[in-house]
Structure formats: structure tokens, C-alpha cells
Design a protein around this nucleic acid. Sequence first.
DNA 1: TGTTAATTTCTGTTTTTACTGAAATTACGC
DNA 2: GCGTAATTTCAGTAAAAACAGAAATTAACA
Lengths: 176, 176
Amino acid sequence: MKLSTVEQRFVLHWGEMGSRWGVNRTVAQLHALLYLATAPLNAEDIAETLGVARSNVSTSLKELQSWGLVKVVHILGDRRDHFESLHDVWDIFFVILEERKKRELDPTLTTLRECVLESEEDPEIDPLVKERIEQTLQFLEQITGWYAQMKKMDRASMLKMIKIGIKIQSLLNPKG
Amino acid sequence: MKLSTVEQRFVLHWGEMGSRWGVNRTVAQLHALLYLATAPLNAEDIAETLGVARSNVSTSLKELQSWGLVKVVHILGDRRDHFESLHDVWDIFFVILEERKKRELDPTLTTLRECVLESEEDPEIDPLVKERIEQTLQFLEQITGWYAQMKKMDRASMLKMIKIGIKIQSLLNPKG
DNA sequence: TGTTAATTTCTGTTTTTACTGAAATTACGC
DNA sequence: GCGTAATTTCAGTAAAAACAGAAATTAACA
């Protein structure tokens, strides 16, 4: 399978971005490829298109599946697995947010809570340090609380909210 | 300088998180250390405390300064540079957002715009692919537009907005 | 201006991460 | 159940990133 210049560019850039955000480049490229693909692809095709080893594709696909970004689909009369990505950017965005929250934010919250407890028991800890750790915890709790609320919103309201932007400030402060 | 158990834990965890988000572990640890520090530290102290080479500290400090997270300060009667981090988590958060936007989002927007242009000129490109690329661009534009609005808000309104969460939905849809 | 402290730059090394290709396993069709 | 296709696992290799220590540079001060 040969990619057009545009597709190539998209895939390569996506890979580049991935690696800046702690995502393996091949995984990111593969995701981009499946995102653009107009039909499910099999591992062989992917390996060939991206110019990486078949085994590498297998591993990367597993990774993407574990994120819930890619699903296996079957094609009539074909033994091979085929793979398909989510195609709605917003869906993709929220899936990634949710996963990173689970994998990174939640453990961080746990650690910070333990740190706060531990520092409360220890009179040696500088109050300023104590406060900074607490502030950090509070901050992350605010962010995750807010995120939990956002998740509940329907997509249309989300978009609306994003569009009205700063005007929200006057909604919140009717008198201001 | 010896860290308490809590400080150590905080610093190590921060480093761990950093590396998951594409930030060099030492850089992240160093940042955490300075964030907790109750007074500016010199490079020597930092190297000793974190157990890394002096040169590594120098490089990492440059990196943090380039992000605007850390500043040099001088102490009377001491020739050495001392370093100090921002101490407000929200400030830190926005500085990081802003920097990552500049370094990663903006170039991505440029690339996507070029991709869209190029794909409009090329009749060979599948319309579905064209649409997906456009959707991606639109999505990122919405996100950055919204972010630009948020930046304008004062901190108090930000917090308030975060706190009211989903209730905003009914504010936006008075009739719903 | 010479001496020393402080900092940065650079090169080679280590460590980590990513990847390949072979071998093993699994699934499938006959 | 046997043979083959498809997939996964694994061990070794390659590539990339991080790092230390030495050398070079810069800055301070006498």
C-alpha cells in the first residue's frame, strides 16, 4: 500500500508528535495510518506501508488496542485480523485523556495523598513544603474533578462551551 | 542537602511522571526539587542532592529556564548562581501549557493546514482522507481557540468555572 | 592581568528504549 | 488431527537518549 504525499506527511508528523509526548513513534504512526485508512488494514499491509517489522506492528497494535483506540475486525473470507481506528477526533481525544488519567494522574493522586498524610505526621517537615505538596494535590483534584464533569456533558454542549469561551466569565459574574 | 522521605518521594514521582510525558527525568526531578525548595539552590547543592553530575544539572537548568519555569537569582556575597522555581501550581501549569502549545501544537497546526491545502489541490486524495485531515485541523483549532480564551480569564473565574462543572450546561441551555 | 571559582560545552560511555528476525504458539481449513 | 497461515513472544541488536567527567570558557575579584 502506497501512501500519498499528504498521508505520508500526516503519518510522519503524528509519529513525531507522539514521541514528544511519551508515545512510541511507531505506535503513533500506526495510529495515524489507521486513522486515515478508509478500510481496515491487516498487519502485513501496515508493516509494508510503514516499513517496519511485522513483529513491531504486532506489538504496536496490542498497545493501541490496550488504549482502546484500535479494534480488530474481520473480513469475510480472510483469515487475517484487520484493524480499524476510531475515526472521530473527539472520541480519540477523550479516550486518550481517560487512559492517561487512569495510568498517570490517578497514581499521582494516590502518591500525593500519601505524601500529604506522611508529612502531616512528621513535625520535621517544613510547613512551606507541606503546603506546596497540598497545593499540588488540590490542583490535580480540581483538574480531575472538572474533567469528570466535562465527561458527563454531551458533545454539543461541549462544543458550545468551547465556542463561547471567555464570555462565560460574565455568565458566572452577572454583576461584573 | 538531605531530602526528607516525603520530599524524596515527591521528587522521584515527579521524575517518573516527567518521563512518561516526554520530559527528561532529571529535568523533572530538578524541577520538583526547586518547586519544593524553601530557598534558591545553587547547582552544586542540586547535583549533590539528586546524585547527578554537575554538568547534567547545568544542562537541565538551562532547559528549565528555557521553559520559563526556573529563574536565576543571586545571593549577596555569593558568586554562584542560585535557582528558583515558580511556586504556584497554576502558574506552572499555564507556563507548561503555553510552552507545549508553542513547541508542538503550533507547528502541528501549520503542518495540518499545509496538508489540507495540498490535499485540496490533489484530486487523487480520497475525500474521506481529506475530511479526516480537515477534522483534525478543526479540532486542534477549536482546542487552541478555547485555550486562548481561557488564558484571558482571571484566576478566580477559572476556579469558579471549574467548580461549577457540568452545571454550565444548563446555563448554556436555559430552556433545557 | 593573573588566579581561581563557577559554569558551560563537548566527547565518549552507559543506559534505556525501540526494533528486527527467528522461533514458538495459536488459529484455521481441510 | 495435519499442514499451513497468521500471530505473538522472545532474545539479541541497533538506535536513541541520558549522562558523567574532562576540557574549555566565562566571570569575579584581587
